[in-house]
Design a protein around this nucleic acid. Structure first.
Length: 645
DNA sequence: GCTCAGTCAGTCTT
DNA sequence: CAAGACTGACTGAG
């Protein structure tokens, strides 16, 4: 498959082989009407808008969204090919029941957006039976609260003592606030959860109704057969705590529960045919569908465990055998039902690719970056016979033609180790409003106008946790060809929400205006002044944690000037990221110094947990002006605006 | 730098 | 209500 690295220098291959690739980006240069206009302005379609902007929102086109169903699966990867379960969306009923009951359940009289949002979404109906939107909402809310609790704990500012387990605390907060879904237990798929979805905490699976135990590996459902009540197994988690056999992608040999010594001074014991084990035995005879969740190590951080929903299995056999401790252990053989999208199987394939035991179909180049990145970037085309993308120079950094003067430069901290969360003597932390912007594992806590990172000029250690975006690519990326959207970007590694993905590298240009009319249309423009739809809030909700709503107006006054970047001739993997109206990635401005001058960077972070081989997309936003170049959006999401650009 | 085993506080369901 | 289910972040040895 490997055909050597793709040419990075012009002239090394015949020009006939440099294909004119279909534009990935359909951004068009735009005029900034007012120098005073805040560049980071975001707004709902109803405004308000700042002076100098004329917003254009083609939201009305939802009903005639040009997204054909047959687009599902065309790219042949997990992200776009997953099938929505045959849902009982019951939209009409949901609306009427929800609006009638919501006010009864929640008589909170807060006028804030979260409470309104919360009442609409977390109505009794959507708590019992979910959908994709509800599942994503619950997961985003959980992680935002968890990140905030983690941030507060690390700064040792926790108001009610220490929070050793922010995941459990966040789970507790959401449970008591009723932010959960699919509470009605069921066999089969909880609506809104998709095969291949990944989870970083047991609580996440509990909150979306995938697995209803905060610790237990076997979840059961009590059923009635005539007068007899009995429990069936509905989902299991294979976590590595017992000796399960997880070698086969379609078969799982699962151990029953119990018998493991809880502490060092306790003895192992024989497992008993009771509780979960009994339920599994009944499910063997009932042959009901059992959800299987496979826990495994995060390949890019082995101290982190990830749970992968691998779809429905049925139990084919059970037996009793002697475990390593010499005690009896129940074993259950589960076989995956055919016709489901691949999930765990992808993880096995990726392992083999990484180990060099096999290659993905259509591999054109081992490293698109030609050594520029610390980790290789694969180039794959398994949809047609064409070659690599058109020529560009791979650069990992943003190139400024002139310095970018920022009025609020602070020129670094004086910390001499790693900067410590909660240390208000650190000027970099003070620049971030006192909150350390990143929590454990380097996840961004909140979106904000600008994140201030420590710089190479700061005396703190290079491993200071406030340099997340400067450490280079950490994820194994793949640039791959789609059938309808040109080239696209995805990761072989799973990505946790809030994780750093990459910077938008390229050349800073004065204004996209220069390109107009020259016939040199630039489809690789990134412009911070484009309007984003922020209806899906990513940040944590202060009212859930009884916190005051912070006043960010002061911070907004210091928003830097618009930043326009072209990645047409120079760029990194970010130039291959496509637009989506329901994206899994967002961008964030990050500022740090170099040679005593401050520079802005556009940095991408994961909005949700992203399974391997899922296309990475972000919202390109809307030009403030009506332009001729608005393009049909091919994102395929339910809330697709129809057009973008 | 990396992996592994050990430690321990922690929360839901039955 | 107590028992039982096992996690996740961290620490220190190898």
């Amino acid at each position: 498959m490997e055909q050597g690295s793709i040419p990075m220098e012009q002239g090394s291959i015949p020009s006939s082989k440099v294909l004119s690739v279909k534009p990935l980006r359909t951004l068009r240069p735009l005029f900034v009407s007012s120098a005073q206009a805040p560049p980071l302005f975001t707004s709902s379609p109803s405004g308000p808008f700042p002076p100098g902007f004329t917003p254009f929102y083609p939201f009305c086109s939802n009903a005639q969204s040009p997204q054909p169903d047959q687009m599902d699966g065309v790219t042949g990867h997990a992200g776009s090919s997953r099938k929505r379960p045959p849902g009982k969306l019951r939209k009409v009923a949901k609306k009427s029941v929800g609006s009638r009951n919501a006010g009864v359940s929640f008589t909170v009289n807060h006028g804030n957006a979260f409470v309104r949002n919360f009442i609409v979404r977390c109505n009794p109906f959507s708590k019992e039976d979910g959908n994709r939107e509800m599942v994503e909402y619950v997961l985003m809310t959980f992680d935002a609260v968890r990140r905030r609790l983690s941030q507060v704990e690390e700064a040792k500012e926790a108001p009610n003592g220490s929070i050793k387990r922010p995941d459990l605390k966040a789970g507790n907060v959401l449970m008591s606030a009723g932010v959960r879904t699919n509470m009605r237990k069921r066999t089969g798929v909880p609506p809104g959860v998709e095969v291949g979805d990944i989870f970083f905490f047991r609580f996440e699976m509990l909150l979306v109704g995938l697995h209803g135990q905060s610790m237990g590996g076997i979840d059961t459902l009590i059923t009635r057969r005539g007068k007899v009540e009995e429990s069936l197994a509905v989902s299991i988690v294979s976590s590595g705590y017992y000796d399960d056999d997880t070698e086969d992608k379609d078969v799982l040999i699962y151990s029953g529960q119990g018998g493991n010594p809880i502490s060092k001074d306790k003895q192992a014991s024989d497992q008993k045919l009771e509780k979960g084990n009994l339920a599994l035995e009944r499910s063997l005879h009932q042959a009901n569908e059992v959800r299987v969740i496979r826990g495994m190590k995060d390949p890019s951080n082995t101290s982190v465990k990830i749970y992968v929903y691998d779809g429905l299995y049925t139990i084919k056999e059970s037996w009793l055998e002697k475990g390593k401790s010499g005690c009896s252990v129940f074993k259950y053989k589960l076989v995956r039902l055919p016709g489901q999208p691949s999930a765990f199987a992808d993880w096995i394939s990726i392992q083999k690719w990484k180990a060099g035991l096999s290659s993905p179909v259509g591999l054109l180049s081992q490293d698109l970056s030609a050594g520029a990145e610390k980790i290789t970037v694969s180039l794959v085309n398994d949809v047609d016979a064409r070659g690599p993308p058109s020529y560009f120079t791979y650069s990992t950094v943003l190139r400024y033609s002139k310095s970018f003067n920022l009025t609020n430069s602070s020129f670094g901290c004086n910390c001499h180790k790693a900067c410590q969360p909660g240390d208000l003597n650190c000027s970099c932390i003070r620049s971030n409003g006192g909150d350390f912007p990143y929590a454990t594992n380097g996840v961004l806590v909140n979106q904000k106008p600008v994140v201030h990172e420590c710089s190479p000029t700061c005396p703190c250690f290079p491993n200071c946790k406030n340099r997340v975006s400067q450490t280079g690519l950490k994820l194994k990326m793949e640039v791959y060809k789609t059938t309808d959207k040109g080239w696209a970007l995805r990761s072989w590694d799973p990505i946790r929400a809030g994780s750093f993905i990459c910077e938008f590298a390229g050349e800073v240009v004065d204004s996209p205006m220069g390109m107009q009319g020259t016939g040199q249309e630039d489809d690789y423009i990134f412009d911070t002044s484009r309007i984003l739809d922020k209806s899906n809030k990513w940040n944590y909700e202060p009212t859930l944690l009884n916190e005051e709503i912070p006043d960010e107006s002061a911070e907004n006054d210091n928003i830097p000037s618009p930043l326009v970047i072209s990645a047409k001739n120079v760029g990194n993997v970010a130039r291959f990221m496509n637009h989506s109206c329901n994206p899994n990635v967002f961008w964030q401005l990050v500022q740090y110094e170099h040679n005593r001058e401050s520079f802005l960077h556009v940095v991408f972070f994961a909005k949700k947990h992203i399974p391997p081989l899922t296309e990475l997309t972000y919202d390109y936003g809307m030009s403030q002006f009506e332009t001729r170049s608005k393009r049909k959006c091919l994102c395929g999401s339910e809330k697709c605006r129809g057009y973008f650009g």
